[in-house]
């Protein structure tokens, strides 16, 4: 089988997010193996590193909310303290959804360690005071 160059490759365009310059990187990937065969338009090393990571091992911060008992508000915001593998996002979410904490909550407080077995911490991003009224 003799595939022409065009058929062997897929081209993806990504806007680099490393700095505000926002270079548009053109990446050629092997259609079958998914391996990166060329990166065009990268003006710096950091851009090349970012695009390689983003295409081969993307990571994401997970942001959500957690139920708060006895608080002046029913929820606090939470986020992972570092990005996790994109494939683990829903595992982290499951752990966050089944979690309940009690007021008062301070910003930065650790809510979960290694949620769903994923190596990271989930920390609170909004403070919630203890309510003076009995829970209704």
């Amino acid at each position: 089988m003799n595939l022409s160059d065009q058929e062997k490759h897929i081209v993806e365009e990504l806007t680099c997010i490393v700095c505000p310059k926002s270079c548009v990187l053109r990446v050629e990937k092997d259609k079958i193996s998914g391996a990166i065969t060329a990166i065009h338009n990268a003006n710096c090393q950091r851009g090349t590193a970012w695009v390689t990571q983003e295409l081969l091992h993307p990571t994401r911060s997970v942001c959500s909310s957690v139920l708060v008992e006895n608080g002046t508000e029913p929820l606090t915001g939470v986020r992972t303290n570092q990005p996790v593998s994109r494939d683990d996002v829903f595992k982290v979410m499951e752990a966050i959804k089944s979690c309940r904490i009690s007021a008062p909550i301070a910003i930065g407080e650790i809510v979960l360690e290694n949620p769903g077995g994923v190596p990271c911490r989930v920390i609170a991003t909004r403070s919630v005071d203890l309510t003076l009224f009995a829970a209704d």
């Binding site: 911060s61 942001c63 959500s64 909310s65 915001g77 910003i107 991003t125 909004r126 403070s127």
Partner: peptide, 22 residues
């Protein structure tokens, strides 16, 4: 705005909205 992405220029960190406000 409980998602992150705030403060990249001002604090060199990707904070959530409430953290930035704090």
């Amino acid at each position: 705005c409980i998602h992150d992405g705030f403060g990249l220029h001002r604090y060199n960190e990707s904070l959530s909205g409430p953290e930035y406000a704090e």
